[in-house]
Structure formats: structure tokens, C-alpha cells
Design a binder for these strands. Structure first.
Lengths: 142, 142
DNA sequence: TTGCGTGCAAAGGTTTTGCATGGCA
DNA sequence: TGCCATGCAAAACCTTTGCACGCAA
């Protein structure tokens, strides 16, 4: 298991990375894209630092980590706490990357079912359902 | 996109790999585990060959490939066509790391519901639900 | 015989680690 | 001042590719 240290110091890099993630809204980026963003921004942040902050932010529940099927690299996305995203499922379109928030009684039922019948307490914050959205289905991208 | 050639020759390695995958049933393995299995089995198969066959088998729909968030390597799993319901969710315990396979009619319902009501075709192979398993709940590790 | 299949070695890409230096509290 | 954070370089990984040889049809 990887070690997750608590944040002790507030550094410029840590602030910049979190702010950048927040500024992207629902858009996801790879670690590499973040590194490149700061290269252009004349505020170079080493890739090691980027990876370490991403790991920490994921552990803190501030961002989400995805593995999209095609790419060989992980994607990260900001979690907007004001949107109360912890209370519903997230659907991620593997084709266009869209993130869909679903608030539906069947999903609530499923949550209860998993707990009662399968003895499993699901963590909605960390869970994302992958698939293909309606637009991409219609466009035949499935 | 990667090229997928049709199978022309039937080779000993190809047979061995498919047979091994089939023998595992629902269990998933990584490419590396397959290579190691054959190392022990005194029938060494190069990793290149393993990867090439896995790719082909995925293209042929005989096995599934999926990425579990934690690991950095892909997992492969045999698809048993004789089984009524091979599709299932993966539950990953964030506390102990256990991977639980859930095969349940509710999942079919949910799949249909998402498609009809939310216009979303879920990909069960790519989807993993995160949470806490019964053992860890009981142990108060949640 | 033909040309695909194999496997070694090496490349390619992502993520992690070692270590000396820099910076926050 | 005491540690943690940083970032370069290098390692560690997983996967793919080049190429010469082997083998199925």
C-alpha cells in the first residue's frame, strides 16, 4: 500500500495544482498535461511534484483518478464539493469523456441492495461507472 | 488503432494460453502472471507472445481486458460462453484490497434502466465499484 | 515453400524512487 | 531551526516493436 502523508506545509506548487484542477471544472487531464501546462505558464513544476500532489489530492477526495481504456495514462478530475457530487453516481463516457451526474432512485436502491445482500458499503465518491453516452451511441462511436 | 490480424496458424502457444485462461474461470490475471505461470510449467512462452495472444483473444471476444484503478497493469479474464450471466460488477474494498465479483439480477435491471432512462450504455468490464467489504465493515476499518 | 508465429532484446511511455537542495512554519 | 517539499536523474514498470529464426499449412 502506498503511503499517504497528511499535508503539513502549504506550498506554492500545491496551491497552483489544486487551483488549476479546480479551474478545469469537469474536464479531466493527465499528469503529463499538468506538467506541460505549468511549463507554458512560466511556473515550472517538476513531474515528481505533480504526481505526488495528485496522489495526495485523490486521497483527500479533492480530485478523482480515472483510467480511460484507450490511453495508457491516468486522468485526473476536480471534484466540486458545491455540487454535492458525493450523493450520486457518476457516469463517464469512454468515447467523448463526458461526465454525467445521475441522481436516481434505482441507484439508491442499488446502494442499499449492495449493503444488505452483498455486505458491501459503496463509496460513491470514488466510484465511477464507465460506458458510452447517448450522443456517442447515436453517433455510432460505441 | 492497433492492427488485429486474423488467426492463421494454430500454434502450441496459442492453444496453451487460451486453455489456461479458460481453466481460470472467473479469475482474472495479468499478462505477467501468465508469463510466470508458463515459466513454472516448463513450457516457457515469451511475454511478447503472451501479449500478442491476449490482444487477439480480446479482439475475438474470448477474453476481457480491464484496468483496475490501483494496479498499473491490465487484467484479463476468460469469457465463459456457457454461463448464463458472465457479466458482473467488481467491488473493490478500499480497506483490504479484496476484489469481489458480484453476479446479481439487479445489475441487469440497472443496466437496462441506465440505457432506457439515462441513455447510457454501461461497460461492466471497465467499471469497478469502490467501497468497504463486510469483513472490514465488521472490523470497523471503514 | 510461404509467410505467419515466436521470442529475445531493446525501445517507448508512464509512474515511482533516491537524494541533495530549497522552503514553510 | 527542523522537517517537509521539491525536482533532477535514474530506476522501476508495463507494453510494444524490430528482427532473425522456427514452424504450421
Amino acid at each position: 500500500m502506498k503511503q499517504t502523508r497528511p499535508t503539513r506545509y502549504t506550498t506554492a506548487q500545491g496551491k497552483l495544482i489544486l487551483e488549476y484542477m479546480a479551474s478545469l471544472g469537469d474536464k479531466h487531464v493527465t499528469a503529463h498535461q499538468i506538467v506541460r501546462h505549468f511549463e507554458t505558464a512560466a511556473a515550472v513544476i517538476g513531474q515528481t511534484t505533480v504526481y505526488r500532489h495528485l496522489e495526495k489530492l485523490v486521497a483527500e477526495g479533492k480530485i478523482r483518478k480515472y483510467l480511460l481504456s484507450e490511453g495508457n495514462s491516468a486522468c485526473y478530475q476536480y471534484i466540486d464539493r458545491n455540487k454535492a457530487c458525493q450523493e450520486h453516481f457518476h457516469l463517464k463516457c469512454e468515447s467523448c469523456g463526458a461526465l454525467i451526474h445521475v441522481d436516481c432512485t434505482l441507484l439508491d436502491k442499488m446502494q442499499g441492495h449492495l449493503l444488505q445482500e452483498h455486505d458491501f458499503q459503496i463509496n460513491l465518491l470514488k466510484t465511477t461507472l464507465y460506458g458510452t453516452c447517448g450522443n456517442c451511441l447515436a453517433a455510432g462511436k460505441a
